[in-house]
């Protein structure tokens, strides 16, 4: 995949490095040559020094031929504008913008820009770590569905996966067992030590907690 990264911030450097190692064709743009200098010597992608909203710079970065774009500059407004332009003017199929403002993140998601709000993520993760809970939120899918992890309660050992399914409310999507994760059949049976990965509709979390406690 050809990926264009706008902004050689810490997140930009890390992303560039990881995608480059994974064999993707990476181009990274930043106005500051000093920022680009933070890339490791092993980075095999292309580096461009220039303003990320400058049309000539974007064209030099072959934005029209990219499969994906990540806007990760430290400026929310720049990231939003870059993401919208990439999507609508240059037809980049997959575009993600990093935002600091949680309020804006949800709205832009509704406007068709995939956003990652590092602030919200940080808050959620720190809250989880500070208050141990049986249910560990992994991700939100849109606004109405949560992906959660939970250890299998002993009382469900030997029961079929279908025992923990409520159509429209919750479903076990994967099970981790002995270092391996797989997608279960409804008739698969839970085993002791299983870690469950569940999708739960917003509002049904209490229901799930009840099921796991019985």
């Amino acid at each position: 995949m050809r990926v264009l990264i706008l902004g050689c911030s810490r997140i930009g450097v890390g992303l560039a490095q990881r995608l480059d190692l994974a064999g993707h064709t990476v181009t990274i743009v930043d106005p500051e040559p000093a920022a680009l200098a933070r890339l490791p010597a092993s980075f095999g992608g292309r580096q461009l020094s220039g303003h990320v909203l400058d049309r000539r710079v974007l064209e030099e970065a072959s934005i029209e031929h990219q499969d994906a774009l990540a806007a990760v500059t430290p400026n929310d407004d720049v990231n939003i504008v870059a993401a919208r332009l990439a999507r609508l003017a240059f037809h980049v199929p997959r575009v993600v913008a990093r935002l600091y403002s949680p309020r804006a993140a949800t709205l832009y998601q509704q406007l068709g820009i995939q956003t990652v709000c590092t602030t919200t993520w940080g808050i959620n993760r720190i809250t989880e770590l500070l208050s141990y809970a049986e249910l560990e939120p992994v991700a939100s899918i849109g606004t109405g569905v949560e992906l959660l992890d939970a250890p299998l309660p002993p009382l469900l050992v030997g029961r079929p996966v279908s025992a923990l399914a409520r159509p429209g409310e919750l479903q076990v999507v994967a099970i981790s067992r002995d270092g391996r994760t797989f997608l279960p059949h409804p008739e698969s049976r839970f085993e002791s030590g299983d870690r469950l990965h569940l999708v739960v509709a917003a509002g049904a979390t209490d229901h799930l907690v009840d099921l796991l406690r019985h």
């Binding site: 407004d77 504008v81 406007l111």
Partner: peptide, 16 residues
């Protein structure tokens, strides 16, 4: 005085 800010405002005003 900032172009990207103006563009975020125009996108919000029109599309949201």
């Amino acid at each position: 005085g900032t172009d990207e800010t103006n563009l975020v405002i125009t996108s919000l005003a029109r599309f949201a």
